[in-house]
Amino acid sequence: MFCQKVRLTQENMTKSTVLMAAVCLLFSISLTSLQSLTTAKNGGQADTLHYPKSFGFGRTATLKEIALLDTDVRPDGKGLPAGSGKVSEGKLVYAAKCSGCHGATGVEGPNDQLVTIKNPTDPKVKARNKTIGNYWPYGTTVFDYIKRAMPFNQPGSLTDQEVYNLTAFLLHENGLIKADDIINAKTLPKVVMPARDFFVPDDRRDGPEIR
């Protein structure tokens, strides 16, 4: 489906230009089909073959300005800041800054449920029971997301320390770490997330099969 990593060399630029010119002169009607063939081959970049190597627009980014924006955390822990968090401290932050939307124990809402209820029978509770404990495949995502987007009414206002504490608390409430476990850049990527095994890449394909 994709034609990735098309490296445009001077050579294929020239070849293509010459070929196009020849076709243009001799069989101008065929130009469209040649273009679409080239488009398919080069992943939609055929009309950019004549571009210069660089336009010279834009400027080099400084490390400082990148660091200000680059807060993302990968599953391998890349991007996690210094510091560490405790369950007991996280409990206090949660009560003060999160419980209003997610409920006293992370179950009640009104917004997203964060903590798993074991074996719910009420279908409504069951449907709502999509939590960090049973639907989040990576612990690192908890840190990344809280830091960038929470609390909803004051996004980005939490310190790294508060985010580490909250992450520890929420993982513990879901039974994923012990009460005295410390969460930091080394331990967080190693937390075993039960949902991890459920996730599969897209298995739909072109063609008639319904998946």
Partner: peptide, 14 residues
């Protein structure tokens, strides 16, 4: 940000 793996963000996981 160019990378050699997906970031597994909140929107693409849970």
């Amino acid at each position: 940000e160019l990378s050699d793996q997906p970031f597994q963000t909140r929107q693409e996981t849970s």
